[in-house]
Design a protein around this nucleic acid. Structure first.
Lengths: 201, 201
DNA sequence: TTGTTAAAGTTAGTCATGCTAACATATGTT
DNA sequence: AACATATGTTAGCATGACTAACTTTAACAA
């Protein structure tokens, strides 16, 4: 017997539902925003019942936190790559990090919001805190090199934090459509380069 | 007849339900965040049926937009007051605006988020756009004075926008708990003063 | 093999919520 | 007094988060 339904496409067990749900949720969230997002939709997209996600995520919030953490991880990878393509510890490498940051926000605005507190996704989440710190660590490292230091001391933080602050603000303003408020459009690259220079000096 | 139930406490008509709903919603939102907020809760708080709000707001989004607009208006008033308490067109008056901005964000973090795109509350809303512009106008005016100009030209925008960017970023980082990431705590006042100086120069 | 266990799905149902429709009551104008 | 309008109510629908109880599959021991 053993009814050779080998080619059955709808396997009862899914393989990697967790990953697929994150992927589905990411795409839905970037389409309709974290609020307009529903578990049900993600289930429909993944072709699975509405109870299935709760084997992998304790709640909707938990799924959102996973997506936020995933976003922070990918942001860190972006930044790492960018740093590698520039002479280390220079204004160029530091500006590149900033550009990568803003680019990410513009590319995935809703995920970016999620990464920074939207939907109550506070960094009380251990996973988020860790990947977040890793991202910031990249900037701190570059600024330390720029200042000719081997450790992250108060002076390094004093230079790096304002830079983060600036690109963070630019990111939020960009995704909120505030770059087009003027008759004179804001050039993101130029904006970052100038501010980086001024804030580092 | 006319059953003299004059002292009936529960008047059928409420007086100013619209205002009361906004007040109720504001307080609930600052307690549980814009997501955790429900129309039903606001109705309970205002002591009114769940259908009543729809005589005053077309949807939940609409109520949220009203709260955001109200927040922008109050932010503008704060900024206006602060400017008046300093010599016009100086680093001090400009720093004070920035401090007021960040203070508002810290005082009403969830409303602040709402004012800047959370919950899909985009500035496509005409009312929000208007009060938002008024706020920015205060900063533009001060920077123009600082530069000795009578009009807002490209140079003014080129100085003012980075300042906005900076305090905007600082606000978001503050309400997201990122000011305590270091061993060396960030002093908001000092941070704003230094950045204002560097970005204006 | 086969039997047991745990992991990962499913169905069905509960409760809260956003919103609408139909109805009720107050207010103000004539 | 009569009507129109604004503003409230009740009842009900649709959707969505989540749970409980059950089922299927995979994994592993015997």
């Amino acid at each position: 017997m053993t009814d050779v339904t080998v080619h059955k496409k709808t396997a009862y067990h899914h393989g990697d539902l967790k990953g697929e749900l994150i992927a589905a949720a990411r795409s839905l969230i970037e389409m309709h925003g974290p609020d307009g997002f529903s578990m049900s939709d993600a289930c429909r997209l993944a072709g699975v019942s509405t109870a299935a996600p709760y084997r992998h995520f304790s709640s909707k919030q938990d799924l959102l936190a996973a997506i936020a953490a995933d976003g922070l991880k990918r942001l860190g990878e972006d930044m790492e790559t960018l740093v590698q393509n520039h002479p280390r510890g220079t204004v160029e490498s530091i500006s590149a990090i900033g550009r990568g940051y803003v680019d990410f926000a513009i590319r995935e605005p809703h995920t970016f919001r999620l990464m920074f507190g939207a939907m109550g996704a506070k960094p009380e989440n251990a996973q988020m805190r860790e990947v977040g710190r890793a991202c910031y660590g990249i900037l701190l490292g570059e600024v330390a090199k720029f200042l000719g230091k081997t450790e992250v001391d108060e002076a390094v933080v004093g230079r790096a934090f304002p830079l983060w602050t600036f690109v963070h603000g630019l990111s939020f303003l960009a995704i909120d459509g505030k770059l087009d408020v003027h008759e004179f459009p804001v050039d993101i690259n130029e904006s970052i380069r100038i501010a980086t220079g001024r804030l580092l000096s």
